[in-house]
């Protein structure tokens, strides 16, 4: 066992770190685009709203593996030679942007319009209105949900092994071809994913409890 850990522990640990980098990086980029998409979703311009809606529906209603495969194929067609890990990160970002947009849109919709009208009546400008009135009510809604999304992303990222991105699941395949310890390696990897996902879920639950003081008027 100690032999196994000293020889292959590094490979697995590197895979684990890459999974974390992929997921958090993709989540960060996806959050920025998700916020942008959410503002498009609630915009009054029909075309803008329609564009954002079709992106969100397209991503939310197709499997992640197919999206990743398409992205890799597209990179091939465009003759872009990028690191697979980088393409995987983009895939996670594309995926999470759609889900993030829906989370933020839900939060924005839960804030009654009277708040915005009241702010306008008090002559509070749009920037200050967002910072003082919208954001404090949005965060308690968005934070727990987006941390839950992060947990989902960790699980979905395992699909990236199917397109040879060197993350945790892929590193397991590599170690198995060298050791033939099939069950043991998948069990170790399973435990690593469990620890990661369950601790993120616990964080989401903590945030939810912590922020339940805000009951957005619905």
């Amino acid at each position: 066992m100690t032999d196994f850990i000293t020889t292959y522990g590094g490979t697995l640990l590197r895979g684990f770190l890459w999974t974390i980098i992929l997921v958090t990086g993709g989540f960060a980029i996806g959050s920025v685009f998700g916020a942008l998409l959410a503002s498009m979703l609630v915009s009054k311009k029909k075309l803008v709203g329609w564009l954002a809606r079709s992106y969100v529906e397209l991503i939310r209603n197709t499997p992640f593996l197919i999206q990743a495969m398409l992205l890799f194929a597209l990179m091939g067609v465009l003759r872009l030679r990028l690191e697979p890990v980088l393409v995987g990160l983009v895939a996670v970002a594309i995926y999470s942007a759609a889900y993030m947009a829906e989370i933020i849109r839900g939060g924005l919709n839960s804030i009654p319009n009277g708040q915005r009208e009241g702010a306008r009546a008090l002559a509070i400008g749009p920037l200050l209105q967002f910072r003082l009135i919208i954001l404090p009510q949005l965060l308690p809604f968005v934070l727990p949900a987006s941390v839950n999304l992060l947990a989902t992303l960790c699980k979905e990222s395992a699909f990236l092994a199917g397109v040879s991105v060197a993350e945790l699941t892929f590193s397991g395949q590599v170690v198995i071809t060298q050791t033939f310890l099939i069950f043991e390696v998948w069990a170790i990897i399973g435990v690593l994913y469990l620890v990661l996902v369950l601790s993120i879920m616990a964080l989401a639950q903590f945030l939810e409890r912590r922020m339940s003081w805000v009951n957005p008027a619905r």
Binding site: K155, T169, Y193, L194, L198
Partner: peptide
Amino acid sequence: LMRGLPIVI
């Protein structure tokens, strides 16, 4: 367990 384990694994 099922909620924490990726379906792939």
